[in-house]
């Protein structure tokens, strides 16, 4: 009888562990590394699409004293691309965790639920940072996008937008049973925010009730932050408030997503 074998002493498993969060982020990045096509699309596609917008407005005359349409739209798209791409990628990735049984398995290990979600946020946040650096560089050098403020602030806002996309994607995956359903959450979650974010029509020119909706949608603040960077050389207080609101919305979505991860299911 060997029942006297003493169990190895290990840390309790409920609270957040930076080590497990990092291990999970590394695992998600490794999965990405084996998927070259997704990497290529993630890194190159926003620059290509931005090029299309550049060509679209290249020969449209600009009113004197006004910023060119491409400067305004292109800058905003720098925040919208990472949001959309990361929302899609994350909602599918998390749905795969759910349907492949790996999620249930992870929940039987010492990994805390928030470790898992933050791991995803960290991994795709890093991917988004790389994407933003490439896109912003191409936009400002090749397409001559004119940004009055600091380009690094544009990258920062793009990364925060990406994290918002990740967080909403993680949350949305809880309501999808299949990948078909998951991709259809894209128009549900992304398009209304895009329509009402102030790019198509400035927020103060919308009907009052649309303004009210626009003001509770986080992408509105991301777009406002980018417009602030486009306008003024120094970082404005409005911009920082906007960035904080977007980050807060991302954290809220992450917390809600954690609540949807049930260890015990029927």
């Amino acid at each position: 009888m060997t029942a006297t074998t003493t169990p190895p002493v290990r840390a309790a498993a409920t609270h957040l562990s930076p080590r497990l969060t990092a291990a999970t982020a590394a695992r998600v990045l490794r999965q990405l590394r084996h998927d070259r096509r997704t990497i290529a699309m993630m890194l190159v596609l926003p620059s290509v699409l931005l090029g299309l917008l550049y060509l679209l407005w290249k020969d449209v005359p600009t009113l004197p004293g006004q910023p060119s349409i491409f400067d305004r739209v292109g800058l905003t798209m720098l925040g919208i691309f990472p949001f959309v791409v990361m929302f899609l990628v994350t909602s599918i990735a998390m749905l795969r965790e759910r349907t492949s049984g790996t999620l249930e398995r992870l929940l039987t290990t010492p990994l805390a639920r928030l470790d898992l979600l933050l791991g995803y946020g960290l991994a795709f946040g890093l991917a988004a940072a790389l994407q933003a650096v490439i896109t912003v560089t191409v936009a400002t050098t090749v397409y001559g996008l004119d940004v009055t403020g600091s380009v690094s602030l544009v990258v920062l806002i793009a990364v925060v937008d990406a994290v918002l996309g990740v967080a909403l994607g993680l949350l949305a995956s809880a309501f999808a049973r299949s990948e078909f359903q998951a991709v259809q959450f894209m128009p549900v979650v992304v398009l209304p925010q895009f329509f009402l974010c102030g790019l198509l029509v400035p927020v103060d020119q919308m009907a009052g009730w649309l303004q009210a909706i626009s003001h509770v949608l986080p992408l509105t603040y991301a777009v406002e932050a980018l417009q602030e960077v486009g306008r003024s050389a120094a970082a404005t207080g409005t911009m920082w408030t906007d960035v904080a609101i977007v980050a807060g919305a991302a954290l809220l979505a992450l917390a809600l997503a954690a609540a949807t991860l049930r260890r015990r299911t029927s």
């Binding site: 169990p7 290990r10 840390a11 309790a12 498993a13 409920t14 695992r27 490794r30 999965q31 084996h34 998927d35 492949s100 049984g101 790996t102 249930e104 398995r105 039987t108 290990t109 010492p110």
Partner: peptide
């Protein structure tokens, strides 16, 4: 929670990452 490092579970359908 403190059982999670002491109990291992292998489901019937393999639950591992196919893309790793």
């Amino acid at each position: 929670p403190d059982l999670r490092s002491r109990v291992g579970y292998v489901t019937q359908a393999p639950s591992v990452y196919e893309d790793l």
